[in-house]
Amino acid sequence: MSTYPEVPGEPTQTSTAFIETATATIQNLAPIKKIHQHLCAFHFYAYDMTRQVEAHHYCAHQNEEMRQCLIYDSPNADARLIGLEYVVSENLFLTLPDEEKPLWHSHEYEVKSGLLFMPGVPGPIERQDMEKVVKTYGKVFHFWQVDKGDNLPLGLPQVMMAFTRDGQLYEELVKGVESRYGISVSKERENRAYMSGPTHGIQPLANGGGKGLKTELREIDCKPQIPYPESLFE
């Protein structure tokens, strides 16, 4: 069970649950069925390293160089969908415009430190994929600040970053996943010592360009609509 406050609302009614069982059977859920991987890692708010969140990534490959992940706060059936991550190869990352690059983070430290792992997957299989992930960059937004106790997704999307060196992540968080998943982060670090990050090194504009990032809401005028010759619904 999640330790975060409960989402307000009535328990799901039986009639609602019945309908949803039916729709789950009837409908084509192809994009969701494409998800083939569960990665566990930690993110922090791009302006506050002290706010750290355990993030469960459920990922699908778009192609060899790109994957897209739904991020949940736990691996349980009642997990909250708190964000999204896009993961791209070094190649694709380098094609991004310079003003885009700071929004992306490197994965080299997360992989090499052993902090990024696939729950339940044996080391040799996990490492085959980690050899690829270690060279990639990711872009994460969280929409739900569960770490500050929000019981609903309030406020603005948040840019999230990943850890880049020792001493940043709270030790309790590491111990938490180690005990729940029966893994040893320090042992896995040794297993992954042979891996190497992006071929051209970590691009200096990535990871916020070394600075913090924050989101702000700006009010804008609505663009006037070009009138349609005849409206569909008049």
Binding site: A46, Y47, D48, M49, T50, P102, L103, S106, L156, P157, V159, M161, T164, R165, D166, G167, Q168, Y170, I202, A206, N207, G208, G209, G210, K211, G212, L213, K214, T215, E216, L217, R218, E219, I220
Partner: peptide, 17 residues
């Protein structure tokens, strides 16, 4: 409404990146 992403100081625990 539009969202802007602005550069700011980061509250740190250890050097970054």
């Amino acid at each position: 409404f539009a969202i802007d992403i602005k550069s700011t100081d980061m509250k740190l625990r250890a050097p970054f990146p």
